Amino acid sequence: MAGTLFVTGCSSATTEQWKRLGLPEGASDRTEAVRSLWIGAWIAALIVGVMVWALILYAVVRYRRRTEEAPRQTRYNLPLEVLYTLAPFAIIGVLFFYTIEHGNKITAMSDSPNHTINVVGQQWQWTFNYHETVNGQEGVWETGTLERPAELWLPVNESVRFELTSPDVIHSFWVPAFYFKLDAIPGRTNKFELTPTKIGVFAGKCAELCGLYHSRMLMTVHVVTADQYQAHLRELAAKGQTGAATGGQDATTIPGYGQQEGGN
């Protein structure tokens, strides 16, 4: 009865999330590979857990203490030792195989993506440089501040390559609905590619502790039609936000103090 009440009390969204074992609803072409690996790992863990607990309970019942006499002592059991040596290697081998197989799908990149966006993560906001020709101008950009988080616009069903850079410390670009996360590391450019598959507005954030205002290093991701995407780029060009930007203006300013962290 209690179980029935519990199930009926769950919304359809909660039920679907339970089926995904806690994952958010996916919105990119990397969804299936990540979800398959995630759920497969949980199934493997459940099988191993059930087997271990079954062996523990069997040993508890089968070899429970019956008399005051000490049980017969055994120096070794070769078949058993071979089993618990080879079994972990077999489990690790299977998990390793599927991790590599799915990992290659998740990190795959094409020779010519439809769009390329340079993502600059800096303390403490995001800047997006769209490598597009808009109204005869090469490249447009937009950025955020602590008071107004950045917005990223992407066209649905068109591949996008992200090039991640950072001028200060390590940040991590993460949009949970895209099932992908990658660090922006000073001195190097990290790249990944995916295709948004669902129109909507999604939350993004920095997933690497990067300083005082790490918790406010947020972004809003708009996945729109191709026409809406191009219209947004034209709006940026009309504002004069052309070329490339290396970071948000006053991104490191502490509100109320008018100075950067560590300043006098």
Rank of each mutant, 00 (worst) to 15 (best):
A238K: 11
A70C: 09
V224S: 09
E132V: 04
G262Y: 09
R30S: 15
G9P: 07
H232L: 00
D227V: 15
W126Q: 00
A33R: 12
P24C: 09
A177K: 04
P255L: 03
T195R: 01
I199V: 14
L86N: 11
E25Q: 14
S110I: 09
L21M: 10
F202P: 00
D29R: 02
G40N: 08
L236G: 01
H131K: 10
K198N: 00
M109D: 05
D111M: 10
E68W: 11
H131V: 13
G22W: 02
V60W: 11
R75F: 11
L95P: 02
L218G: 01
S166R: 03
H115N: 15
A54S: 07
I170V: 14
M109L: 11
L209C: 01
A238D: 10
I39E: 05
W38V: 07
G247C: 09
G103L: 06
R66A: 09
H214E: 06
T67A: 04
V134F: 02
E261G: 08
A177Q: 15
N264A: 15
Q123H: 12
Y63A: 10
W153H: 11
N114T: 14
V221C: 00
Q228E: 15
L80T: 06
L55Y: 08
V50E: 04
W174V: 05
E25I: 04
Y179G: 14
W53V: 08
R66K: 13
Q122H: 13
M109Q: 15
M1P: 02
L233D: 04
H115P: 08
P155A: 03
T189A: 06
H171C: 08
M1V: 03
L5F: 02
R161P: 00
G26F: 00
L5H: 02
P79N: 10
I47S: 03
D183C: 00
A231Y: 02
Y76P: 04
G26M: 15
L212M: 11
G93W: 12
I43H: 05
E163R: 13
V61T: 07
P71K: 06
S166G: 13
L154V: 15
A44N: 04
L152S: 14
V50H: 00
N104P: 07
E138W: 05
P71G: 08
L146N: 08
C10F: 10
Y130R: 04
V60Q: 05
M1D: 04
L154R: 13
N190P: 09
V34D: 07
T143I: 01
P24V: 15
G187Q: 03
L46D: 01
F89G: 14
T14V: 12
Y213D: 06
A27V: 03
L21D: 05
V34M: 04
A54M: 10
A59T: 09
S11D: 03
R62H: 12
V201I: 15
Y84P: 05
L78G: 05
M51H: 10
G26Q: 14
M51N: 07
I254G: 07
Q17W: 02
V221N: 01
G139Y: 01
E208P: 03
A44L: 06
